[in-house]
Design a protein around this nucleic acid. Structure first.
Length: 321
DNA sequence: CTCCAGGTTGCGT
DNA sequence: ACGCAACATGGA
């Protein structure tokens, strides 16, 4: 019987230097996770081809600094992930600690250390959720491990449709200009907060963001660059509600964005973006309503989701997108 | 043309 | 406390 953990990884490690395998315990399937990522047309931060997922990452350089690398993830079978890494020059010389960092990123990205069995047990008995878990069996809450990226994506996505949000993100990423050219393809990195912190609001407005949104992004970038906001700081919060208060105290971050980030970056299982239009539409559809549910109705339907609100939301979203 | 998009702020009752 | 316009753009 396999379980996640260091010993399993070590036992299965292939000693070719830049390759490693990760056995993921049930319930997990690579396919629905890849399908989720593939569903985002116009996504600029990863590339999927022939079942292979590639993404540029920032990694430790072995002497306290950072170096970019290219990660490739594919499934040997549905629950055995094969991870490969290339350095910025596109060759296979990578440090063991870079392999460790890449593996940690993958474990975080796909929430691999979560035991999903209790969620499925709960969902089986829930009139709405029971119809979401079979079509997406093995889907994890795909995360956004970098806090600044998660906050930016939340802020960018406020109020606009997802297609346009992707366009704006791409413009921001390309305007900041950090990428890896490997194998004839360009792999973009999300800009660090320090880079966005020094931009004038006008630079973001040129990308067709609202003036407000530009200020929100830059203000948030500054907080992170100054070390006044971090993943560690949010993780230290005593509860999801307290972390939410820390975030909503920031201009431009309301309850939706706060919960979205706590869900996709901090991985707080009880994070719940109730105000989300997509969630409301999914519930409307599944419950056969002729209008979107009110917040009160949503809370009532979600009464049994306690501790799994984030997963419930993610699975409900999948019914729409 | 109108309405709605993975909302939030700031001002007016 | 609560309602509501403004915000930039694109797709239905």
């Amino acid at each position: 019987m396999w379980y996640n953990g260091e010993d399993v990884t070590r036992r299965l490690a292939i000693l070719t230097g830049n390759e490693r395998k990760i056995k993921v315990p049930e319930p997990f399937r690579f396919t629905p996770n890849l399908a989720y990522l593939a569903g985002a047309a116009n996504e600029c931060l990863y590339r999927i081809r022939e079942g292979r997922l590639r993404k540029a990452l920032r990694l430790p350089d072995g002497s306290g600094g950072q170096a970019a690398g290219l990660l490739e993830l594919r499934a040997e079978d549905e629950s055995l992930l094969a991870l490969r890494l290339w350095n910025a020059a596109g060759t296979e010389e990578v440090l063991p600690e870079q392999m460790d960092a890449a593996e940690a990123y993958v474990r975080d990205w796909f929430d691999l250390s979560r035991d999903l069995a209790p969620f499925y047990a709960m969902a089986e008995r829930d009139s709405l959720l029971q119809r979401t878990i079979r079509p997406f069996y093995g889907l994890r809450l795909v995360g956004i491990p970098d806090l600044f990226e998660a906050l930016s994506w939340g802020i960018i996505g406020q109020q606009i449709n997802l297609a346009f949000a992707h366009t704006l993100k791409r413009r921001l990423v390309e305007a900041c200009g950090e990428y890896l050219d490997i194998g004839g393809e360009r792999h973009w990195l999300f800009p660090p907060a320090e880079r966005v912190a020094e931009l004038p609001a006008a630079a973001l407005q040129e990308l067709q963001m609202t003036g407000r949104k530009s200020e929100y992004l830059i203000g948030t970038a500054r907080l992170i660059a100054e070390g006044r906001l971090s993943k560690e700081l949010l993780a230290q919060a005593g509860s999801c509600a307290e972390a939410e208060r820390m975030l909503t105290g920031i201009r431009g971050i309301g309850p939706w964005t706060a919960n979205y980030v706590l869900m996709r970056c901090l991985r707080m299982p009880a994070a719940f973006p109730v105000g989300d239009v997509g969630l409301q539409n999914a519930v409307r559809q599944l419950a056969g309503m002729d209008r979107k549910p009110t917040q009160e109705e949503l809370y009532r339907l979600a009464a049994g989701w306690t501790g799994w609100e984030s997963y419930a939301t993610f699975y409900l979203w999948r019914m729409l997108y």
